[in-house]
Design a protein around this nucleic acid. Structure first.
Lengths: 244, 244
DNA sequence: ACCTGAACACCGTTCAAGT
DNA sequence: ACCTGAACACCGTTCAAGT
């Protein structure tokens, strides 16, 4: 799938590029079709049956339309996927909020995490495409605002946000899935089967390890550790060699 | 691909399970074939051409063997992929090391990150499969040892390691790719094209944001923030309400 | 102008057959 | 016992044709 992605950027012409960022084709639609309807249906399919279930054929079938009709609205499947990611990212809450910067930042990242939890397949989609669309950058803007207001330089704010975002994506992509009951039981069994001589500590921590692997609340632990660590650097920097 | 994964665990019988964890079939090999050779070739293919290039047909072609011959060594492609992940994880450095626990933990996670950087496709493979094989758990054992020695309870050690691991995976999966020169230029352009009124801070931080997105060293920033945050919790816990 | 079936070049895997 | 080609049920996408 991603082999196709990497093979066809095709450097858009300036004028064409501008058009491409908003509505690409959007034909007149003899059937009731629209880009929005296609995206909504794709998201429904994604949430219900996962990333692998989102094929052009099945999406078309769901819309009761010929497969090739979709290609009148999105030139390639990739284009549809990018639009999907942008749309979902665009719904993440970025209210200004109030209070200390640490609390505001915490709130923001929990909103990102919540969006991931609601649409797990979207996280997978973001793996290979470093999408920098407007919808996806709303969160970045908000985070940068909070961090710069707190006293971080633009460079440090950008780096700090990066660690928060990558941690959040990591948790969503590799962390516990929402149903994860069965996973936990399997984890316990796998850990219990380890040779005690080579895994002395883990053998004594089977339950604790399995719980940590299944526990959604570990997200907040890491998030708070990161934010605390960033705060230390902020105050250390201000004291140590003064901000310019 | 992963639809197939989820559809066929098939609960092994106890005796069968034991056999399955080591050598599954390993036929006598009239050609010079072996599970090891297949895995080595698969890893070479993966590193050279990426995850999508690793198809059973192409792997067989590379080995100058009929496609179906591979199925004599691995029952399914998934089985081959799991073996691949386990083998690569098994090579991560987990020397005991010395010094303060923070430095040892830092070293360990940098080793994990290094392995990811060397085999990016392996990170993708670990997305959907929460593999708990012996090879992959060596790092866990080492991390738990370090954290427990430092004074964390087994539960807190397991949770702490979890945040470190998920951050590391997040960075490797969603962070800058190793070549990423071109990405950076494209990022700058995308950020510069944002409407200044809706993105006032980001518009002023185009270069800083693009640099942070391309910078491998941001990994250490987040890693150190996390470890510092964990340390705060360790000492706070020891002072606050004493360890049992 | 809008929609679409057939076809092409791919997948993983089953099955029956080769030696 | 070991190996494998043909076949099946899928992909994304091109192309030429329908209305």
């Amino acid at each position: 799938m991603s082999a196709n992605v990497s093979s066809t950027p095709r450097a858009l012409q300036p004028r064409e590029a501008r058009a491409a960022t908003r509505e690409v084709l959007e034909p007149g639609s003899r059937l009731g079709l629209s880009r929005k309807l296609i995206l909504d249906t794709a998201l429904k399919l994604l949430d219900r049956d996962g990333l692998d279930a989102l094929t052009m054929r099945r999406l078309a079938e769901e819309l009761e339309v010929g497969t090739m009709t979709l290609y009148g609205y999105f030139r390639r499947k990739d284009e549809l996927l990018d639009a999907l990611v942008d749309a979902v990212a665009g719904r993440i809450a970025v209210e200004p909020g109030q209070g200390f910067w640490k609390a505001r930042l915490r709130e923001l990242m929990i909103g990102v995490r919540k969006s991931h939890a609601e649409h797990p397949a979207i996280v997978e989609l973001r793996l290979r495409r470093p999408l920098v669309s407007a919808g996806a950058l709303r969160v970045t803007e908000q985070a940068m605002t909070i961090l710069c207001d707190a006293g971080f330089s633009r460079r440090e704010a950008a780096r700090a946000y990066r660690t928060l975002l990558l941690y959040t994506f990591g948790f969503s992509a590799f962390g516990p899935s929402d149903h994860g009951q069965r996973d936990s039981q399997q984890t316990v069994e796998a850990l219990a089967a380890l040779p005690r001589d080579r895994f002395p500590v883990l053998s004594e921590s089977v339950v604790e390890a399995a719980e940590a692997m299944a526990d959604q609340s570990v997200f907040e632990l890491g998030l708070d550790c990161l934010i605390d660590g960033l705060e230390q650097r902020l105050t250390a920097g201000a004291r140590g060699h003064g901000a310019p």
